[in-house]
């Protein structure tokens, strides 16, 4: 488990989900109509196409305290807008590398192709992701960022005399 993560007994992973209107959002509706039961950890934001999902949405969700981000789009070749999902896929590949550099486990960002008929898949994906995040523990990014800020402040303080000198030199 992550050293920053101090999961309390009642901690529940929070997942921000971005679902495309035509496939995955509809599949989630179908899961509802079929009365499938799954973990109540996701909060869905509906976009028309997964191609609308800006990497900044994902980063913003993590920095505001999400433990995981789930993206759902149409299967390759099935995008309602022909290939917005593939445009998203390219971004997700880049985003994963960036998240790694930020110390965010890759498994915290999950991309799934879920068609309008796959209500069952919404259930299994959400449950599986919750189980994964339970194992990873809280991301607690805001707290970590605060700790980093403190470290940076100390670092700057330690460097302060030298920095002041340099400033004079180059003044």
């Amino acid at each position: 488990m992550d050293p920053h993560a101090q999961a309390s007994a009642d901690w529940r992973p929070r997942i921000v989900a971005f679902f495309c209107n035509w496939c995955t959002y509809t599949a989630a509706d179908l899961a509802g109509v079929s009365r499938l039961k799954y973990a109540p950890n996701t909060r869905v934001i509906r976009v028309m196409c997964s191609g609308r999902i800006d990497p900044q949405f994902v980063l913003d969700a993590f920095t505001r305290g999400a433990d995981g981000v789930l993206i759902g789009g149409c299967h390759p070749g099935d995008c309602h807008y022909s290939e917005g999902n593939m445009k998203l896929l390219r971004r997700v590949h880049l985003l994963r590398r960036l998240l790694g550099d930020m110390g965010i486990d890759e498994q915290r960002l999950r991309l799934e192709w879920i068609s309008a008929a796959e209500g069952e898949k919404v259930k299994t994906v959400v449950n599986d992701m919750v189980a994964t995040l339970q194992k990873l523990g809280p991301l607690a990014f805001p707290e970590r960022a605060a700790a980093w800020d403190l470290e940076m402040d100390e670092f700057e303080r330690a460097l302060a005399p030298a920095a002041a000198l340099e400033e004079v030199t180059h003044g």
Binding site: C49, R52, D54, D60, H80, G84, K87, R91
Partner: peptide, 24 residues
């Protein structure tokens, strides 16, 4: 679809009903 909105490097494309401000 909004694909261009998410891809614009200068954030100069926007989408009605799915504005960045709304989603953020």
């Amino acid at each position: 679809c909004g694909t261009c909105v998410a891809s614009c490097p200068s954030a100069s494309i926007r989408q009605h009903l799915f504005e960045d401000a709304q989603i953020f």
